[in-house]
Design a protein around this nucleic acid. Structure first.
Length: 255
DNA sequence: ATGGCCTGCAACGCAGGA
């Protein structure tokens, strides 16, 4: 099973890239973030023609998440249970015998912002839910745009980013807590090139100069992690004209 | 140098992203 996550930064704009990428890479499950569209405009028909069923949770202008799969995902859950949120950032569903959680964790903007406090409250609620989901689903995969660079090696300029949003200690502590629940960072199960990132700023030639952050992640429960064979960041769509600022992260799991 | 770039909305700049 090949699973992937990709923040497409507007599915309307990126649909051609997505369709080309699905055709080339043939993933079995794809979690998408930042659809930036309402559900009535979701391109379900075009994706079905490409061989993918969709479940999705969108809103106008911002946020929005989807799970694509070869067979229709079952038992979808929108949002974190018990955490009312107008922002469409969470979608969980079951594909075959694997529970998949697609996340678009809040950005936080800056440590002084109300949005940062929202991010930390949001992460508190997420932790409790993930713990329960792990207990309920031995085969659990949590994929998405976490908006957290877990370690300094995930940051192109750790000194410049020290203590900043995406790298602050409370955010990194939340990421470590997810690992403490028993989830594994699939990317770090394998040797990787130094300076591997999943997001690069549109400005100042960020991608060309590899000024990036690794903030998009695939976390796997123990049962999936032991069967994980590869995990990599696919930089190829980032090289296209009018790209998303994020690259897909892909993992292959046996069975 | 606190903006550079991109998206959506709807206006002729803004919010938001990271």
């Amino acid at each position: 099973m090949k699973i992937a996550t990709w923040n497409v930064n507007s599915l309307k704009v990126r649909l051609p890239h997505l369709l080309d990428w699905l055709d080339a890479d043939q993933p079995d499950v794809v979690c998408l973030q930042e659809l930036k569209m309402t559900d009535d405009t979701f391109p379900a028909a075009a994706l079905a023609e490409a061989g993918y069923q969709s479940v999705f949770s969108g809103q106008k202008t911002y946020n929005g998440v989807a799970i694509l799969s070869r067979t229709l995902a079952q038992d979808p859950v929108k949002d974190i249970p018990g955490f009312p949120d107008e922002q469409r950032r969470v979608l969980a569903a079951t594909v075959a015998d694997t529970r998949v959680i697609c996340l678009y964790i809040p950005n936080g903007q800056s440590l002084e912002s109300d949005k940062y406090q929202y991010k930390l409250r949001w992460l508190d609620a997420l932790q409790a839910w993930l713990k329960a989901e792990l207990a309920a689903h031995p085969r659990l995969a949590v994929l998405g745009d976490f908006n957290i660079a877990p370690e300094d090696r995930d940051v192109h300029d750790p000194a410049a980013w020290a203590g900043q949003v995406l790298c602050s200690e409370p955010e990194r502590a939340h990421f470590r807590q997810m690992l403490a629940h028993g989830l594994k960072d699939a990317f770090r199960l394998f040797d990787q090139e130094e300076k591997s990132y999943s997001w690069w700023d549109y400005r100042q030639g960020g991608f060309r100069r590899n000024l990036g952050l690794r903030i998009d992640h695939i976390l796997l429960s123990e049962a999936l992690a032991t069967r994980c064979r590869t995990c990599h960041i696919d930089k190829s769509p980032r090289k296209l004209e009018r790209p998303s600022d994020h690259a897909p992260v892909v993992a292959v799991i046996d069975g």
